[in-house]
Simulated scan of single mutants.
Amino acid sequence: MKKRMIALFFIGILGLTALCGCSKASSDPSSTEGDTSASDNETYEVVDNGNDSYSLELFAMDTYMTLTAYGDQETCSDALIASATEINRLEDLFSTNIASSEVAQINANGGGSVSDETAYLIEKSLEYYEQTSGAYDITVYPLVYEWGFTTQDYKVPDQATISSLLELIGSDMLHIEDNTVTFDKEGMMIDLGTIAKGYASQQVMGIFEKYGITSGLVSLGGNVQTLNAKPDGSDWKVAIQNPDVYNGATDYMGVLEVTDKAVTTAGGYERYFEEDGIIYRHIFDPSTGCPTTSSLKSVTVVADDGTDADGYDTPLFVMDLEAATKFWQEHADDFSIILMDENDQVYVSEDIADDFSSDYDVTILKRK
């Protein structure tokens, strides 16, 4: 855990995995017994980093997070504590493993009523599903659970099991109307883990602004979002993790300079297991029911909105290089991308090429 946020902020996120609190995962993905609120007994410590910089660390949404604000001590402390409280509140809404969360209740009961915020994320998820032709799908949760990525009881299911669970996958069978969620098939479940941290980072930016913070950033398990520029007016420098950790890589594959942007990365290196010489990554292809075999090793999305950045990186990872590039070209006004393929070739969209530096070979992706 880092005690201070300085020049570089490493990023790299869990993709299609369940949000969870600090409680032990149940053996039943729809069970809500024995789990506790993320905010139970939570205390916060604000650290004075010097130079009018203050930070707060917490563990939420299954990852370590660091929030940093610049300004006077009282204002920064109030803003940071309010932000941490908000993150835990959101986890209590969205987690699959907290008994009282709205998502856990939906999964346990086969549907039900939800708050405006949960409804908003489900509706956004359905938009991503349509835009990406199903590459983004929050109903993949039963498969992710069966493979053991939510419990760390990893296994490769037999094809009959995968085929059976594929019958439950498809956001076209998920409906929400007047904040009421329904499924077409019994046994369907959802997981908002692929966009919850992005939404949380966006909410923190709003809290910072409410408290009058004019410069700050958050690193939520790799999801980085910045408020304005650094206090001296310069860009923030965000280091993107080298995804080749399977072979012991500890460096980063590039540095991106940003101001007032969200930067999220999907990569298979955060959670994976190996069986019979095959590495299975935690990001799933909803069409096969298996971890993706995409030739891409890392996908970074840069956007104005944290939810959108988080929502696009996972489906782009599922796509191959050609499809991901084409998708970006069709949505180039909405976000920017940095890709790395299995040959360690890096591809950067032209709009951020001048802000990105790397020791790897870089190809600039052009708009249509």
Results as ranks from 00 to 15, higher is better:
residue 194 T to W: 01
residue 195 I to C: 06
residue 196 A to C: 08
residue 198 G to T: 07
residue 199 Y to F: 15
residue 200 A to Y: 02
residue 204 V to Q: 01
residue 208 F to I: 08
residue 208 F to M: 07
residue 209 E to Y: 05
residue 213 I to P: 01
residue 215 S to N: 15
residue 215 S to C: 14
residue 217 L to P: 00
residue 220 L to T: 06
residue 221 G to Y: 03
residue 223 N to G: 14
residue 224 V to H: 02
residue 225 Q to K: 12
residue 227 L to P: 02
residue 227 L to V: 11
residue 228 N to R: 12
residue 229 A to E: 14
residue 229 A to W: 00
residue 230 K to Y: 11
residue 231 P to A: 11
residue 234 S to F: 08
residue 236 W to F: 15
residue 236 W to I: 08
residue 239 A to C: 09
residue 245 V to R: 13
residue 245 V to W: 00
residue 247 N to A: 01
residue 248 G to P: 05
residue 248 G to K: 07
residue 249 A to H: 09
residue 250 T to V: 13
residue 250 T to D: 11
residue 251 D to W: 05
residue 251 D to H: 01
residue 253 M to H: 07
residue 254 G to Q: 00
residue 254 G to Y: 04
residue 255 V to L: 07
residue 257 E to S: 15
residue 265 T to E: 07
residue 266 A to P: 05
residue 267 G to T: 13
residue 268 G to R: 03
residue 270 E to Y: 12
residue 272 Y to H: 14
residue 275 E to V: 11
residue 276 D to R: 12
residue 277 G to Y: 07
residue 282 H to K: 11
residue 283 I to R: 01
residue 284 F to R: 04
residue 284 F to M: 15
residue 285 D to L: 07
residue 285 D to I: 08
residue 286 P to H: 08
residue 288 T to N: 08
residue 289 G to Y: 05
residue 290 C to W: 14
residue 292 T to G: 02
residue 294 S to P: 03
residue 297 K to N: 15
residue 297 K to R: 14
residue 298 S to K: 02
residue 300 T to V: 12
residue 302 V to W: 03
residue 303 A to R: 06
residue 306 G to D: 05
residue 306 G to Q: 05
residue 309 A to P: 03
residue 309 A to R: 00
residue 310 D to V: 05
residue 314 T to P: 02
residue 317 F to K: 02
residue 318 V to D: 03
residue 318 V to K: 00
residue 318 V to L: 04
residue 320 D to H: 09
